[in-house]
Amino acid sequence: MSMLATVALLLALAPAQKAALPFIEDDYGRALAEARARNLPLFIEAWAPW
């Protein structure tokens, strides 16, 4: 991923980071890309609304 794309990705995520844990909802590709860009493990909560 280019630096520009990484920055764009991080900026796009910025508002969500106000929450205690900044969950990305239902977007595995985006979360994986961010985890690779930031060299962080990916935490996945698999849940269902019932």
């Binding site: 844990l21 990305i24 985890a35 909560e45």
Partner: peptide, 19 residues
């Protein structure tokens, strides 16, 4: 997940919720 004491963990993972 709303517990404030977890805020310190926020930057240590990328967080994904999957319905």
């Amino acid at each position: 997940f709303t517990d404030e004491s977890l805020r310190a963990e926020a930057g240590r993972f990328v967080w994904l919720a999957i319905d």
